[in-house]
Amino acid sequence: MYTTDLSGKKAKPEAAITENPAKLAAFEARVAADEFIEPKDWMPEAYRKTLIRQISQHAHSEIVGMLPEGNWITRAPNLRRKAILLAKVQDEAGHGLYLYCAAETLGVSRDEMTEALLSGKAKYSTIFNYPTLTWADIGAIGWLVDGAAIMNQVPLQRTSYGPYARAMVRICKEESFHQRQGYEIMMHLAAGTDAQKRMAQDALDRWWWPSLMMFGPPDDKSPNTEQSMRWRIKRDTNDELRQKFVDITAPQAEAIGLSVPDPALKWNETRGAYDFGDVDWEEFYAVVRGEGPVAKERNQARVKAWENGAWVREAARVHAEKRANAKIAAE
Protein backbone atom coordinates (compact mmCIF):
# COMPACT_ATOMS: atom_id res chain seq x y z
CA MET A 1 0.00 0.00 0.00
CA TYR A 2 2.05 2.99 0.86
CA THR A 3 4.31 5.43 2.60
CA THR A 4 3.45 8.65 4.37
CA ASP A 5 5.67 11.62 4.93
CA LEU A 6 5.62 11.29 8.71
CA SER A 7 7.86 14.19 9.51
CA GLY A 8 6.97 15.40 12.95
CA LYS A 9 7.10 19.08 13.80
CA LYS A 10 10.58 18.80 15.26
CA ALA A 11 12.24 16.69 12.57
CA LYS A 12 15.30 18.32 11.13
CA PRO A 13 16.35 17.83 7.53
CA GLU A 14 19.24 15.42 7.04
CA ALA A 15 22.19 17.60 6.10
CA ALA A 16 24.67 16.53 3.45
CA ILE A 17 27.40 18.93 4.45
CA THR A 18 30.00 16.43 5.64
CA GLU A 19 30.28 14.65 2.29
CA ASN A 20 33.14 14.91 -0.17
CA PRO A 21 32.03 17.85 -2.37
CA ALA A 22 33.29 16.37 -5.65
CA LYS A 23 31.58 13.02 -5.07
CA LEU A 24 28.44 14.77 -3.93
CA ALA A 25 28.38 16.96 -7.03
CA ALA A 26 28.85 13.95 -9.30
CA PHE A 27 26.09 12.12 -7.46
CA GLU A 28 23.70 15.03 -7.68
CA ALA A 29 24.44 15.42 -11.38
CA ARG A 30 23.57 11.76 -11.99
CA VAL A 31 20.34 12.11 -10.05
CA ALA A 32 19.47 15.33 -11.85
CA ALA A 33 19.98 13.48 -15.15
CA ASP A 34 17.40 10.92 -13.96
CA GLU A 35 19.96 8.13 -13.76
CA PHE A 36 19.34 5.31 -11.31
CA ILE A 37 21.59 4.98 -8.29
CA GLU A 38 22.44 1.31 -7.64
CA PRO A 39 23.42 -0.40 -4.36
CA LYS A 40 27.16 -0.41 -4.98
CA ASP A 41 27.26 3.21 -6.16
CA TRP A 42 28.62 5.93 -3.95
CA MET A 43 25.84 7.85 -2.25
CA PRO A 44 25.69 10.51 0.45
CA GLU A 45 25.05 9.11 3.90
CA ALA A 46 21.97 11.30 4.28
CA TYR A 47 20.55 9.85 1.06
CA ARG A 48 21.10 6.32 2.31
CA LYS A 49 19.54 7.13 5.69
CA THR A 50 16.55 8.92 4.21
CA LEU A 51 15.96 6.04 1.82
CA ILE A 52 16.24 3.41 4.54
CA ARG A 53 13.74 5.35 6.60
CA GLN A 54 11.36 5.89 3.71
CA ILE A 55 11.52 2.38 2.24
CA SER A 56 11.26 0.65 5.60
CA GLN A 57 8.33 2.87 6.62
CA HIS A 58 6.75 1.97 3.33
CA ALA A 59 7.36 -1.74 3.98
CA HIS A 60 6.01 -1.49 7.53
CA SER A 61 2.91 0.24 6.16
CA GLU A 62 2.28 -2.71 3.87
CA ILE A 63 2.62 -5.17 6.73
CA VAL A 64 0.57 -3.27 9.30
CA GLY A 65 -1.86 -2.46 6.50
CA MET A 66 -2.68 -6.16 6.27
CA LEU A 67 -4.35 -6.00 9.68
CA PRO A 68 -7.33 -3.67 9.17
CA GLU A 69 -8.32 -5.49 5.99
CA GLY A 70 -7.39 -8.92 7.32
CA ASN A 71 -9.96 -8.18 10.02
CA TRP A 72 -12.69 -8.83 7.42
CA ILE A 73 -11.37 -11.88 5.54
CA THR A 74 -13.36 -14.34 7.64
CA ARG A 75 -16.47 -12.14 7.36
CA ALA A 76 -16.43 -11.18 3.67
CA PRO A 77 -20.01 -11.27 2.40
CA ASN A 78 -19.61 -13.79 -0.42
CA LEU A 79 -17.05 -16.13 -1.94
CA ARG A 80 -15.98 -13.73 -4.66
CA ARG A 81 -15.35 -10.91 -2.20
CA LYS A 82 -13.53 -13.29 0.14
CA ALA A 83 -11.15 -14.39 -2.60
CA ILE A 84 -10.55 -10.82 -3.77
CA LEU A 85 -9.84 -9.59 -0.25
CA LEU A 86 -7.49 -12.50 0.47
CA ALA A 87 -5.61 -11.87 -2.76
CA LYS A 88 -5.37 -8.19 -1.97
CA VAL A 89 -4.09 -8.63 1.57
CA GLN A 90 -1.68 -11.24 0.25
CA ASP A 91 -0.41 -8.67 -2.23
CA GLU A 92 0.34 -6.34 0.67
CA ALA A 93 2.52 -9.05 2.20
CA GLY A 94 4.30 -9.43 -1.13
CA HIS A 95 4.81 -5.69 -1.40
CA GLY A 96 6.20 -5.55 2.11
CA LEU A 97 8.59 -8.29 1.08
CA TYR A 98 9.78 -6.51 -2.09
CA LEU A 99 10.33 -3.33 -0.10
CA TYR A 100 12.22 -4.98 2.75
CA CYS A 101 14.45 -6.54 0.09
CA ALA A 102 15.02 -3.13 -1.51
CA ALA A 103 15.90 -1.64 1.89
CA GLU A 104 18.28 -4.52 2.59
CA THR A 105 20.38 -3.47 -0.41
CA LEU A 106 21.19 -0.32 1.59
CA GLY A 107 22.83 -2.30 4.37
CA VAL A 108 20.04 -2.74 6.89
CA SER A 109 18.69 -6.20 7.77
CA ARG A 110 15.06 -7.22 7.83
CA ASP A 111 15.45 -8.23 11.47
CA GLU A 112 16.66 -4.74 12.34
CA MET A 113 13.72 -3.20 10.52
CA THR A 114 11.27 -5.59 12.18
CA GLU A 115 12.76 -4.83 15.58
CA ALA A 116 12.30 -1.10 14.93
CA LEU A 117 8.68 -1.66 13.97
CA LEU A 118 7.86 -3.83 16.95
CA SER A 119 9.53 -1.54 19.46
CA GLY A 120 7.50 1.38 18.12
CA LYS A 121 10.63 3.19 16.97
CA ALA A 122 9.79 2.94 13.29
CA LYS A 123 6.72 4.65 11.90
CA TYR A 124 4.19 3.46 9.38
CA SER A 125 1.32 5.14 7.59
CA THR A 126 -1.05 6.76 10.09
CA ILE A 127 -4.09 5.47 8.23
CA PHE A 128 -3.72 1.94 9.56
CA ASN A 129 -4.25 3.06 13.12
CA TYR A 130 -7.94 3.54 12.41
CA PRO A 131 -10.33 0.59 12.89
CA THR A 132 -12.35 -1.24 10.24
CA LEU A 133 -15.82 -1.36 11.74
CA THR A 134 -18.04 -2.47 8.89
CA TRP A 135 -17.69 -4.17 5.52
CA ALA A 136 -17.93 -0.74 3.87
CA ASP A 137 -14.56 0.08 5.43
CA ILE A 138 -13.02 -2.50 3.12
CA GLY A 139 -14.51 -0.61 0.21
CA ALA A 140 -13.37 2.73 1.59
CA ILE A 141 -9.83 1.49 2.16
CA GLY A 142 -9.52 0.18 -1.38
CA TRP A 143 -11.03 3.27 -2.94
CA LEU A 144 -9.52 6.04 -0.79
CA VAL A 145 -6.46 4.58 0.90
CA ASP A 146 -5.21 2.65 -2.10
CA GLY A 147 -6.23 5.56 -4.28
CA ALA A 148 -4.05 7.88 -2.22
CA ALA A 149 -1.28 5.28 -2.18
CA ILE A 150 -1.28 4.88 -5.96
CA MET A 151 -1.06 8.64 -6.39
CA ASN A 152 2.03 8.64 -4.24
CA GLN A 153 3.55 5.50 -5.69
CA VAL A 154 3.23 6.07 -9.41
CA PRO A 155 5.85 8.84 -9.39
CA LEU A 156 8.09 6.68 -7.19
CA GLN A 157 8.52 4.30 -10.13
CA ARG A 158 10.97 6.93 -11.35
CA THR A 159 12.59 7.51 -7.99
CA SER A 160 16.38 7.77 -8.10
CA TYR A 161 17.23 4.59 -6.18
CA GLY A 162 17.12 1.68 -8.63
CA PRO A 163 15.97 -1.17 -6.34
CA TYR A 164 13.23 1.03 -4.85
CA ALA A 165 12.05 2.19 -8.28
CA ARG A 166 11.94 -1.38 -9.58
CA ALA A 167 10.03 -2.59 -6.53
CA MET A 168 7.57 0.24 -7.13
CA VAL A 169 7.09 -0.77 -10.77
CA ARG A 170 6.07 -4.24 -9.67
CA ILE A 171 3.93 -2.94 -6.83
CA CYS A 172 2.09 -0.43 -9.01
CA LYS A 173 1.38 -3.12 -11.58
CA GLU A 174 -0.02 -5.44 -8.94
CA GLU A 175 -1.96 -2.73 -7.15
CA SER A 176 -3.91 -1.69 -10.18
CA PHE A 177 -6.84 -3.83 -9.06
CA HIS A 178 -6.83 -2.76 -5.43
CA GLN A 179 -8.45 0.62 -5.85
CA ARG A 180 -10.98 -0.62 -8.39
CA GLN A 181 -12.19 -3.45 -6.18
CA GLY A 182 -12.68 -0.95 -3.35
CA TYR A 183 -14.68 1.42 -5.50
CA GLU A 184 -16.72 -1.51 -6.78
CA ILE A 185 -17.61 -2.46 -3.20
CA MET A 186 -18.70 1.13 -2.52
CA MET A 187 -20.72 1.22 -5.75
CA HIS A 188 -22.62 -1.90 -4.73
CA LEU A 189 -23.29 -0.56 -1.25
CA ALA A 190 -24.31 2.89 -2.44
CA ALA A 191 -26.77 1.32 -4.88
CA GLY A 192 -27.99 -1.23 -2.34
CA THR A 193 -30.47 -1.22 0.52
CA ASP A 194 -30.85 1.77 2.84
CA ALA A 195 -28.78 -0.03 5.43
CA GLN A 196 -25.98 -0.63 2.92
CA LYS A 197 -26.04 2.96 1.76
CA ARG A 198 -25.81 4.15 5.34
CA MET A 199 -22.85 1.83 5.87
CA ALA A 200 -21.10 3.26 2.79
CA GLN A 201 -21.67 6.89 3.80
CA ASP A 202 -20.48 6.18 7.33
CA ALA A 203 -17.28 4.65 5.99
CA LEU A 204 -16.63 7.62 3.71
CA ASP A 205 -17.27 9.96 6.67
CA ARG A 206 -14.68 8.17 8.78
CA TRP A 207 -12.00 7.55 6.15
CA TRP A 208 -12.05 10.80 4.18
CA TRP A 209 -9.94 12.99 6.47
CA PRO A 210 -7.45 10.29 7.48
CA SER A 211 -6.97 9.63 3.75
CA LEU A 212 -6.08 13.28 3.14
CA MET A 213 -3.61 13.02 6.01
CA MET A 214 -1.85 10.18 4.20
CA PHE A 215 -0.06 12.70 1.99
CA GLY A 216 1.72 14.03 5.03
CA PRO A 217 1.92 17.49 6.61
CA PRO A 218 1.48 20.67 4.56
CA ASP A 219 4.51 21.60 2.46
CA ASP A 220 5.56 24.45 4.76
CA LYS A 221 5.73 21.94 7.65
CA SER A 222 7.53 19.21 5.75
CA PRO A 223 11.21 19.78 6.40
CA ASN A 224 12.57 16.98 4.22
CA THR A 225 10.65 17.82 1.11
CA GLU A 226 13.13 20.07 -0.66
CA GLN A 227 16.13 17.76 -0.35
CA SER A 228 14.04 14.67 -1.08
CA MET A 229 12.70 16.31 -4.22
CA ARG A 230 16.22 17.23 -5.36
CA TRP A 231 17.36 13.67 -4.77
CA ARG A 232 14.31 12.31 -6.61
CA ILE A 233 13.28 10.31 -3.55
CA LYS A 234 10.08 12.23 -3.69
CA ARG A 235 8.69 13.58 -6.93
CA ASP A 236 5.70 15.71 -5.95
CA THR A 237 5.02 17.72 -2.81
CA ASN A 238 2.50 16.64 -0.20
CA ASP A 239 0.09 19.45 -1.00
CA GLU A 240 0.27 18.86 -4.77
CA LEU A 241 -0.64 15.21 -4.29
CA ARG A 242 -3.39 16.00 -1.80
CA GLN A 243 -4.99 18.46 -4.20
CA LYS A 244 -4.78 15.94 -7.02
CA PHE A 245 -6.41 13.32 -4.83
CA VAL A 246 -9.32 15.58 -3.88
CA ASP A 247 -9.83 16.60 -7.51
CA ILE A 248 -10.04 13.01 -8.64
CA THR A 249 -11.96 11.56 -5.71
CA ALA A 250 -14.68 14.13 -5.08
CA PRO A 251 -16.43 13.47 -8.44
CA GLN A 252 -16.10 9.69 -7.84
CA ALA A 253 -18.05 10.09 -4.60
CA GLU A 254 -20.68 12.21 -6.29
CA ALA A 255 -21.06 9.68 -9.11
CA ILE A 256 -22.27 7.02 -6.67
CA GLY A 257 -24.41 9.37 -4.60
CA LEU A 258 -22.17 9.66 -1.54
CA SER A 259 -21.24 12.98 0.02
CA VAL A 260 -17.75 13.97 1.04
CA PRO A 261 -17.81 15.05 4.71
CA ASP A 262 -16.41 18.52 4.06
CA PRO A 263 -18.77 21.52 3.91
CA ALA A 264 -15.98 23.62 2.41
CA LEU A 265 -15.53 21.31 -0.58
CA LYS A 266 -16.37 23.34 -3.66
CA TRP A 267 -15.20 23.44 -7.28
CA ASN A 268 -13.14 26.55 -7.91
CA GLU A 269 -13.56 27.57 -11.54
CA THR A 270 -10.61 29.96 -11.61
CA ARG A 271 -8.15 27.51 -10.06
CA GLY A 272 -9.59 24.60 -12.02
CA ALA A 273 -9.49 22.60 -8.80
CA TYR A 274 -11.53 21.90 -5.69
CA ASP A 275 -11.25 24.10 -2.65
CA PHE A 276 -11.45 22.03 0.49
CA GLY A 277 -11.44 22.46 4.26
CA ASP A 278 -8.56 22.29 6.70
CA VAL A 279 -7.19 18.96 7.75
CA ASP A 280 -7.02 18.48 11.52
CA TRP A 281 -3.23 18.35 11.77
CA GLU A 282 -3.31 17.95 15.53
CA GLU A 283 -5.01 14.61 14.96
CA PHE A 284 -2.38 13.67 12.40
CA TYR A 285 0.53 14.47 14.72
CA ALA A 286 -1.17 12.57 17.54
CA VAL A 287 -1.50 9.49 15.33
CA VAL A 288 2.14 9.85 14.23
CA ARG A 289 3.06 9.90 17.93
CA GLY A 290 1.32 6.54 18.27
CA GLU A 291 -1.96 7.81 19.68
CA GLY A 292 -4.18 6.50 16.89
CA PRO A 293 -7.40 4.75 17.96
CA VAL A 294 -6.08 1.22 17.38
CA ALA A 295 -2.31 1.82 17.42
CA LYS A 296 -1.85 -0.44 20.42
CA GLU A 297 -3.89 -3.22 18.83
CA ARG A 298 -1.87 -3.02 15.61
CA ASN A 299 1.42 -3.16 17.48
CA GLN A 300 0.22 -5.99 19.69
CA ALA A 301 -0.86 -8.03 16.65
CA ARG A 302 2.55 -7.66 14.99
CA VAL A 303 4.44 -8.41 18.21
CA LYS A 304 2.31 -11.49 18.82
CA ALA A 305 2.79 -12.80 15.29
CA TRP A 306 6.54 -12.27 15.54
CA GLU A 307 6.89 -13.83 19.00
CA ASN A 308 4.59 -16.74 18.25
CA GLY A 309 6.57 -17.39 15.08
CA ALA A 310 9.97 -17.36 16.76
CA TRP A 311 10.07 -21.11 17.38
CA VAL A 312 9.08 -21.77 13.74
CA ARG A 313 11.85 -19.62 12.32
CA GLU A 314 14.31 -21.16 14.77
CA ALA A 315 13.20 -24.69 13.83
CA ALA A 316 13.68 -23.95 10.13
CA ARG A 317 17.16 -22.59 10.79
CA VAL A 318 18.19 -25.55 12.96
CA HIS A 319 16.74 -28.04 10.51
CA ALA A 320 18.66 -26.49 7.60
CA GLU A 321 21.83 -26.61 9.68
CA LYS A 322 21.28 -30.28 10.55
CA ARG A 323 20.77 -31.13 6.88
CA ALA A 324 23.83 -29.16 5.81
CA ASN A 325 25.98 -30.90 8.46
CA ALA A 326 24.65 -34.30 7.44
CA LYS A 327 25.54 -33.54 3.83
CA ILE A 328 29.07 -32.52 4.76
CA ALA A 329 29.47 -35.66 6.90
CA ALA A 330 28.35 -37.80 3.97
CA GLU A 331 30.86 -36.26 1.57
Binding site: A87, Q90, D91, G94, L97, C101, R110, E174, R313, A316, R317, H319, A320, R323
Partner: peptide
Amino acid sequence: MHAADGKMALEHARDTYTRRM
Protein backbone atom coordinates in the same frame (compact mmCIF):
# COMPACT_ATOMS: atom_id res chain seq x y z
CA MET B 1 13.38 -13.69 -0.04
CA HIS B 2 14.38 -15.11 3.33
CA ALA B 3 14.53 -18.90 3.68
CA ALA B 4 16.36 -21.41 5.83
CA ASP B 5 17.02 -23.89 3.03
CA GLY B 6 16.85 -24.26 -0.74
CA LYS B 7 13.53 -26.06 -0.83
CA MET B 8 11.96 -23.40 1.35
CA ALA B 9 13.42 -20.68 -0.84
CA LEU B 10 11.91 -22.29 -3.91
CA GLU B 11 8.50 -22.61 -2.27
CA HIS B 12 8.59 -19.04 -1.03
CA ALA B 13 9.67 -17.85 -4.44
CA ARG B 14 6.75 -19.75 -5.95
CA ASP B 15 4.29 -18.18 -3.53
CA THR B 16 5.68 -14.69 -3.95
CA TYR B 17 6.59 -14.44 -7.60
CA THR B 18 4.11 -16.58 -9.52
CA ARG B 19 0.92 -14.98 -8.26
CA ARG B 20 0.20 -13.50 -11.65
CA MET B 21 1.43 -16.28 -13.91
